[in-house]
Each structure stands twice: as structure tokens, then as C-alpha cells.
Design a protein around this nucleic acid. Structure first.
Length: 615
DNA sequence: AAAAAAC
């Protein structure tokens, strides 16, 4: 049963209405430019814009005075009257505060139950809200592996020897059967092979690298593995999991703690922005798996509080992000210039939803002979995420967003605002949009790198609980974060990089559920027109005519669009345009299982390869 | 050009 998220559907409906309310069908924004949309800018001030084309949902609000502030009427006196209410709710109460809220458990007996079900009471409904993966959406997924002697996939967790304790945690997590990435990646990891995996976040990636790590560490403990003397307060984790943002590290930590409950495997997280003392204390109490962001880890390494010399497992989440220009030196320092065992002496696993070939090339430095795994999107294409692109001139963006949010609220369940994640380009822009939404009666908060870590975590918590169902975010929230029930992702400012777009819209339509993604496009995004239009086509989305025209404009065919060169984008085109490098690579000799028919896989990691997991 | 990541 392909259960579609009701919130997302509502959001989709309301957005559709809103679009129609705006003006013509293919141009939801500027009323007076209807058909030929973008080419002829005719700016209509926001307060005049929606007057002419009044229609159903916004009608009531539109009857207000024609001032640019009239939108405050949307929320005035309503239940959303409290602006910035994300500051309430205290610190200890939530689930994500840092520190050892877990208490003072010394041994495994006193380990805090991360499932919160000590009495083993079944909580089917609430649990399913959190973990209910729509497995049927995974049925038809294309999967391709390449490399030598690829271990065959498994169909059930029972087919894998993960150990009793871990199996019990899998049951507690209500994981009935492995997702595609798990079916393939877990046997590969258990076989001790290095792995580069493309898989949509939210399709079970974290478990895919955590299960083998935990299982492997348990076996090492059985053999009472010798660890160096714990002198000088240095700790020696056996596994390191790196991720590009603090919140993602926290999330991985939370997940990993569930998976390792009562296994005796200790998971510790370390990230910046939080007092280091608590993290040090946690480390001193023992660590097998260290989850960390790069900066704080380097700090810990330089203080010699952590040594990597016992590392047996290295996992990079969002690996392409970790190896882009901003991060690469730091990652190289950690992986290559400290005391980490070399490739081959450790097991390395790289995961990401996107994997541009040039990043794959960098990444191969970290890997011994490895297997490449590409798992298609849930539902085999983006049909679980309805993507819309609307032409919106810069000055109209705010009022257009209001239109969407207002209509969404009107159609929401019990008048509640569906969770809406709004991406902007800059931190300043995030602050200003958040403030503007709040003073106009929309319960918004924001997350970006200039906010304190406390504020960031509180904002995320407040969004997740629906307390502030609108979250304005920079790209800090673009990757990896698993927020259930995000009905709508709005690209208020489109990113310059199509991969960032892929990650952003992946915040909705999670775990096989549906979602809606709306992008505001204008001439400033011209360089994205082609890759965006290609992505949407391949995802069976409707590409507006005006966008197709933009995409076909020769001036934007190549130069400006980043590292791409011409029609860079995505794995699909590469493969389908037979850009196969005809297998000269050492890494891709054979062993292809499943997948796109018999064409024999991609080019190798050093040649033109898969750049995206979206197929 | 911006964002992220240590103090």
C-alpha cells in the first residue's frame, strides 16, 4: 500500500491552488506577465500583485487594506500570534540536548534505553510515525554494484549474522526488512570490503554503515581485542564516523546509540559549538565508535585526547560534501596525516546521495580496492517528491512565499501549518526572512551557522515538534537531516549547484513517503536552468515551458555552471548517453549485480562515472 | 559568492 503522506498531499493541493491563484498556470508569480513569463520583467509591487487575480483561498486575506503590511492579517490574533516561540520549551526536556542527559550509567546494565520502551509496551502508532518506512516504495529500485567479487545482497536481516543483541535492536527499531542500500551495503561491509555508495539519505544509509561496524566491534570484543594502554587520557576509538554538520553528527549518534543498545559498544559524539568538557568526559568513559565533525575532531587529536591508531572502520557520511573544496584539507589531515591506519589496514565506507566523478576521484585516495554501489531513489525516480518551479522575481519572493504558506495553512489538518522547510542562500537572508515571517504571523524559526549551537538545536527541535512549523535554513540543513513529516521544501533561493538542490529537496519525501518541493526561479538562477530541467525530466516531473526555454539558451549551456562543463549533471545522463568508459578501470572489472540491465555498469572511479544516485 | 567546520 503506497501510503502517501497526507500532509504532503495537502501541501501539494494548497500549493496548486496558490499557483492558480497567482496568475497563469505555468507562471505562478507575476500576474501581469502571464504567458511569456520571465523574459519581460514587469514588476508589480507585492501589495498590488494579488489584487487582480483574486481567487478562492487567499480571498479573505486579500480583502484587507492594500498596504504592504496587509499580510499580517493572515495570522493576526490567530493561534500563531506568538512570534519566535521557539525559545520556550526549556533545555533538558527535549530529546537532543547535549551533555550526558543519559545520566550516570556506568556499565551496560545502566545504559539508558534509547527506545524509551523499558516495559516493552508496544506503541504501534507513534512508533510507526517515526520509523514507518514505506517499503513498498522500495520495490522497484534500480541498484547497481561494480567491483570484484561483489558479495550478493541479502533479502532479510535474518540472512545476516549480526548477532543477537543487534538483531534485537533492529526489531526494536521496527525494521522489518532491509532497505535496498542495506541489502547490498551490509554484506559488502561484513565481507570486509571498502565501499563507495550512492544512496538517497533517508533510505536507511546510517544503519547500512552502523550495523556492520557495531557487529564487527562486537566480534572484536569477543576476541578481547588488545587495546593500547589507556595512558595520558588518550582514547582509542575503533570506528570513526565523520559528517559535515553538527546536527547530522548528533543525529547519527542518536541512531547509532539505538543500534548499539546493550551490545556493549560505546558510541560518543564530538562536535563544535558545545562545551568540550562534557565531550571529553564522555570519551574518558570509553568509546568504540566516535561520531564527529571535522573541526572538533582535529582539536581532540591535537590535544592528544583521541588517537586514531586503533581505527578499524572509517565512515564518511555525505562524503562528496566532505571532500569538496572547503572540507578536503581538513579531511585529508584527519585521514592521511594523523595516526589513522592506511587504506587496507582499516575498512573505509563512503556514503552520499550525490557523488560527482571528480569527488569520486579524490575519494579513491582513501579507499583500498573498493566496490561501488549505486542505489536508486526511493520509488526509482523523484515521483515521490512533486517538484515545482515557479518564476518569481527577487522582490516578489516574500509575498509569493506567503501565498504558499497561507494556502497551505488554510488547507492544513485542523488549521495546522504543515512542516515547511525554506532554504535561502545566506545567513543574513535567513535571519531576515525568519523575522519577516514572524512579524507577519507565521510561526518560523531559523537555522544557520551564525546562530549559537543552542539556538540551532532548539530551532530544529521546535520545527520537528511542530511548535514552529516553518524553518528557514541555509545549506547547513540541506544534507542528511532526517526530519519526519516535512511536507514541503521551498527553495526560496535556489542553490548554484544542482547537487545541493538534490540534497535539499531530499529533506521531504523521506522513507518512501511523498513530499512537495517548490523552487523560486528567476534570471539569477539561469545557470541552473539546464541541470534542473534535466533532473526534473528524469524524475518525470513537469518542466514548465519557460524553464525549458531557459535551459536551451546557448549562453547558459556551459561556462557558468561550476565544475560541470557542459551538460554536467547527474548520473543518469552519463550512463544513458553511453558515457561508459568501457571498463578500463581496475576497480570495475566485473561483478555486476542487479540494476540497469546488462550494460555492464559505469565507468570506473577514475573515469566518467556516476555522479548522482538519482537513478 | 556563500555555507560549513575549533578555540
Amino acid at each position: 500500500m503506497n501510503t502517501r503522506s497526507s500532509w504532503a498531499d495537502l501541501a501539494a493541493n494548497s500549493a496548486a491552488e496558490s499557483t492558480n491563484a497567482g496568475s497563469s498556470a505555468n507562471n505562478g508569480s507575476v500576474g501581469t506577465t502571464s504567458g511569456n513569463a520571465p523574459t519581460r520583467p514587469t514588476y508589480v509591487p507585492p501589495h498590488l500583485r494579488n489584487r487582480a487575480a483574486s481567487s478562492d483561498p487567499p480571498a479573505a486575506a486579500n480583502s484587507g487594506p492594500a498596504s504592504s503590511n496587509d499580510r499580517s492579517g493572515y495570522g493576526g490574533g490567530s493561534r500563531w500570534g506568538v512570534p519566535r516561540n521557539d525559545y520556550r520549551g526549556g533545555y533538558g526536556g527535549g530529546r537532543g540536548g547535549w551533555g550526558n542527559r543519559g545520566g550516570w550509567d556506568r556499565g551496560r546494565e545502566r545504559e539508558v534505553n534509547p527506545f524509551g520502551d523499558d516495559d516493552e509496551t508496544e506503541k504501534p502508532l507513534s512508533e510507526q510515525e517515526n520509523t514507518g518506512i514505506n517499503f513498498d516504495a522500495y520495490e522497484d529500485i534500480p541498484v547497481e554494484t561494480s567491483g570484484d567479487n561483489v558479495p550478493p545482497p541479502v533479502n532479510t536481516f535474518a540472512d545476516i549474522d549480526l548477532g543477537d543483541a543487534l538483531n534485537q535492536n533492529i526489531r526494536r527499531c521496527k525494521y522489518v526488512k532491509p532497505t535496498p542500500v542495506q541489502r547490498h551495503a551490509i554484506p559488502i561491509s561484513l565481507a570486509g570490503r571498502d565501499l563507495m555508495a550512492c544512496a538517497q539519505t533517508g533510505s536507511g544509509k546510517t544503519a547500512a554503515f552502523c550495523f556492520p561496524i557495531i557487529s564487527g566491534i562486537m566480534k572484536m570484543q569477543d576476541q578481547s581485542a588488545q587495546r593500547p594502554p589507556r595512558g595520558a587520557r588518550t582514547v582509542y576509538p575503533l570506528a570513526l564516523i565523520l559528517s559535515p554538520t553538527r546536527e547530522l553528527s548528533m543525529q547519527i549518534h542518536e541512531e547509532a546509540k539505538k543500534f548499539s543498545y546493550q551490545t556493549g559498544v560505546k558510541v560518543v559524539v564530538a562536535y563544535g559549538g558545545a562545551p568540550i568538557h562534557q565531550q571529553l568526559r564522555e570519551l574518558e568513559r570509553g568509546v568504540d565508535i566516535l561520531v564527529a565533525t571535522p573541526g572538533r575532531l582535529v582539536d581532540l587529536l591535537e590535544r592528544a585526547r583521541v588517537s586514531l591508531q586503533m581505527i578499524k572502520y572509517l565512515a564518511l557520511d555525505e562524503a562528496d560534501r566532505m571532500l569538496d573544496m572547503g572540507f578536503e584539507p581538513q579531511i585529508r589531515k584527519i585521514v592521511e596525516q594523523m595516526d589513522m591506519p592506511r587504506p587496507g589496514l582499516r575498512q573505509t565506507m563512503l556514503f552520499s546521495a550525490t557523488f560527482p566523478k571528480e569527488i569520486q576521484r579524490l575519494a579513491s585516495d582513501f579507499l583500498a580496492t573498493y566496490i561501488f554501489l549505486a542505489v536508486g531513489r526511493v520509488g526509482s525516480s523523484t515521483d515521490l517528491i512533486v517538484q515545482r518551479v515557479e518564476f518569481v522575481y527577487e522582490p516578489d519572493k516574500r509575498s509569493h512565499l506567503m501565498d504558499l504558506l497561507y494556502a497551505q495553512r488554510e488547507n492544513g489538518v485542523q488549521g495546522k501549518q504543515a512542516l515547511t522547510l525554506v532554504f535561502v542562500e545566506t545567513k543574513k537572508g535567513a535571519d531576515s526572512l525568519e523575522h519577516w515571517l514572524c512579524i507577519n504571523g507565521f510561526p518560523a524559526t531559523s537555522i544557520h551557522g551564525d546562530r549559537s549551537q543552542q539556538e540551532r538545536e532548539q530551532a530544529l527541535r521546535s520545527f520537528k515538534t511542530g511548535n514552529t512549523p516553518i524553518l528557514v535554513a541555509t545549506d547547513v540543513a540541506a544534507r542528511g537531516l532526517d526530519i519526519p513529516h516535512v511536507a514541503h521544501v521551498v527553495n526560496f533561493d535556489l542553490p548554484n549547484d544542482i547537487d545541493d538542490y538534490v540534497h535539499r529537496i531530499g529533506r521531504t519525501g523521506r522513507a518512501g513517503n511523498s513530499g512537495l518541493a517548490t523552487a523560486f526561479f528567476n534570471e539569477g538562477n539561469a545557470s541552473l536552468a539546464r541541470p534542473l530541467s534535466e533532473l526534473m525530466q528524469e524524475a518525470n516531473q513537469e518542466v514548465p515551458d519557460w524553464l525549458a526555454r531557459y535551459a536551451s539558451r546557448p549562453s547558459f549551456g556551459g561556462g557558468k555552471n561550476r565544475r560541470s562543463g557542459g551538460g554536467r549533471f547527474g548520473g543518469r545522463d552519463f550512463r544513458r548517453d553511453s558515457t561508459f568508459s568501457r571498463g578500463n578501470s581496475d576497480y570495475y572489472g566485473g561483478g555486476s549485480s542487479g540494476g540497469y540491465g546488462s550494460s555492464g555498469g559505469y565507468g570506473g572511479g577514475h573515469g566518467p562515472g556516476v555522479t548522482s544516485a538519482w537513478d
